[in-house]
Structure formats: structure tokens, C-alpha cells
Simulated scan of single mutants.
Amino acid sequence: MRVRTDIFVSALMRRVFARGDFAAVEVKGAEAAGAVFVRQMFRDGTESLHAPAPQSVFDSEESDTRLFETRLERVAGETVAEAIGRERRFDSDLWVVSVETDDLAGLIDFAEDKPKDDGFFRR
């Protein structure tokens, strides 16, 4: 069973602050099952946008794990804001968490880091 979104976001923010970085909830969505988007802000003024990975990459055994994919990488903040705006028109229940850090390692899991299982062998 997947952890409620509000609890996931709270834990994410605690991990960010524990590392000495900064995080803020930019948009609060559905508490139980809202999608989470992570807006990563870098010191040089660029930003990245990390979104929920498509469910096709989920292993049935990992259905409780939230996996992310990078949608935009090190672009202008306006570009990220426009992408978030488009997503919000599609899904008004989503969350946006802004994180000021150069490294997300240990904070969120990425789908591309997980080995793929195509039924015959793991890659």
C-alpha cells in the first residue's frame, strides 16, 4: 500500500532540511493520492522538473514506491513554471515541491535507476 501523499511530502521535506537544503510546498494537492512534482532549483538560476514516472515502469512488487522521471533538466525557471501550469490544468490535485539543492540523491527515487524486468531477464 502506498503512503499518503501528504505524509510522503512531509518526509521528503524533513530529509531535505536534515541535509541543510531548503524545500517548500509550492502547490498543495490531494492529501491522500495526489501526484507529486519536484521542482529542483540550482544555485546558477536554472531548474529541473521531476514528475511521477509512468506506471508502466512499475514492478508489481514495487507498487508502493514512488518513482520519478526527469521531464526538464537545467532550464530557465519560466520554462518549468509553464510546464507545471500545463500539468495543473490537466490534474488540479497534484503537488509541487520546490527543492533548492544540487543533488537529489537519497531524496527521491528515479525510474531510470531501477533495473527493468521484461519477463525474461533483468537489464
Rank of each mutant, 00 (worst) to 15 (best):
L72D: 06
F37Y: 13
V75P: 04
A11E: 08
F37M: 06
L94V: 12
L94R: 01
G45W: 06
D102N: 12
E61Q: 11
A30W: 13
V96G: 00
K28M: 05
A76P: 07
G85K: 00
G45L: 14
E62Q: 12
A81M: 13
L104N: 02
A51G: 02
V25M: 05
V96S: 01
R15T: 11
A32I: 07
I108Q: 01
V75Y: 05
D21L: 15
L94M: 14
R39G: 00
P54F: 09
V80I: 10
E61W: 10
R19N: 03
M41P: 03
V57Q: 00
Q55E: 12
A23C: 06
A24M: 06
A18N: 03
V27E: 03
D59N: 14
G85S: 08
I108G: 00
T46A: 03
A83M: 06
R88A: 12
G85H: 04
F58V: 11
D93Y: 12
S56W: 11
A51W: 05
A105H: 14
R15E: 13
G77D: 12
R39T: 01
E26H: 13
E82N: 05
E31K: 10
M41L: 13
T70C: 10
R15V: 09
R71M: 07
R89S: 09
A18D: 07
E62C: 14
R74D: 03
A83R: 01
S48K: 02
R71S: 08
A111S: 08
R15L: 15
D21R: 15
L12K: 02
R19W: 05
D91R: 03
E100T: 15
V25P: 05
F110R: 08
